[in-house]
C-alpha cells in the first residue's frame, strides 16, 4: 500500500513535468524560451518516472538499467539543447525585444567586422598557426575539430572555425 502511494506520487510528479513542457511550449513567446520549457523539465520528469518503476518493481537488478537510461538522457539532452539553441540564435529565431541583456551580440558584431577585414586581404591570417599542422590550413571545420592539437596561436584558427 505504501509503495502504491509512493508510485502514484512519483508518477503524477513526472506527468506534471511533461505538462510543464507542454504548457511552456504552447505559451512562451520565442524559440529559446520554449526550449527551456521543452528540454529541461523532462530530465526531472524521466527521473521521477524511472523511480516510480523501480519502486513498483522492487528489484535491485533493475536499478543499473534505469540509472543508465537516465545517464544517457543527462548526456544527450544538453547536447541537443545547445545545438538547437545555437542554430536558433544564429538564424535569428529569437525576439530581441524580449532580451534585457545580450552580451553575445556585440561579440558577434566584432567577429563579423573581423571577417570582413579578413576577406579584403587575400593572405591567410598570420595567427592561423599553419606550422603546427604543416601543409595547408584545413578549411573544413570537421578536419580542424577536436583531434587537432591546440596550437599556441590557436585563437586565429579558432575564430575562423567559429565563422564557418
Amino acid at each position: 500500500m505504501a509503495t502504491d502511494v509512493v508510485v502514484a506520487v512519483l508518477m503524477i510528479g513526472g506527468a506534471l513535468m511533461s505538462l510543464a513542457a507542454g504548457i511552456g511550449l504552447a505559451r512562451f513567446p520565442d524559440l529559446l524560451s520554449r526550449m527551456h520549457a521543452a528540454t529541461k523539465p523532462q530530465v526531472l520528469g524521466l527521473l521521477l518516472f524511472l523511480l516510480a518503476l523501480a519502486v513498483e518493481n522492487g528489484t535491485w537488478l533493475l536499478v543499473p538499467v534505469l540509472v543508465l537510461c537516465w545517464v544517457f538522457q543527462l548526456l544527450t539532452s544538453p547536447v541537443s539543447a545547445h545545438m538547437v539553441g545555437r542554430a536558433g540564435y544564429r538564424t535569428r529565431h529569437l525576439r530581441r525585444d524580449l532580451l534585457t541583456l545580450d552580451e553575445l551580440d556585440d561579440v558577434v558584431a566584432r567577429a563579423a567586422a573581423g571577417e570582413a577585414e579578413a576577406h579584403e586581404s587575400p593572405q591567410p591570417d598570420p595567427a592561423a598557426g599553419t606550422p603546427a599542422i604543416g601543409g595547408p590550413v584545413p578549411v573544413d571545420p570537421a578536419v580542424v575539430d577536436p583531434a587537432a592539437p591546440r596550437a599556441p596561436g590557436g585563437t586565429g584558427r579558432r575564430a575562423r572555425r567559429d565563422r564557418a
Binding site: L16, L19, R27, F28, L32, S33, H36, L98, T100, D105
Partner: peptide, 16 residues
C-alpha cells in the same frame, strides 16, 4: 519553469 509557464506566459524577459 512550470510556475513561469503557468503565470507569466508570454510576458517573459530573458537575457544572454
Amino acid at each position: 519553469v512550470f510556475w513561469l509557464a503557468l503565470t507569466r506566459g508570454s510576458r517573459l524577459r530573458n537575457a544572454v
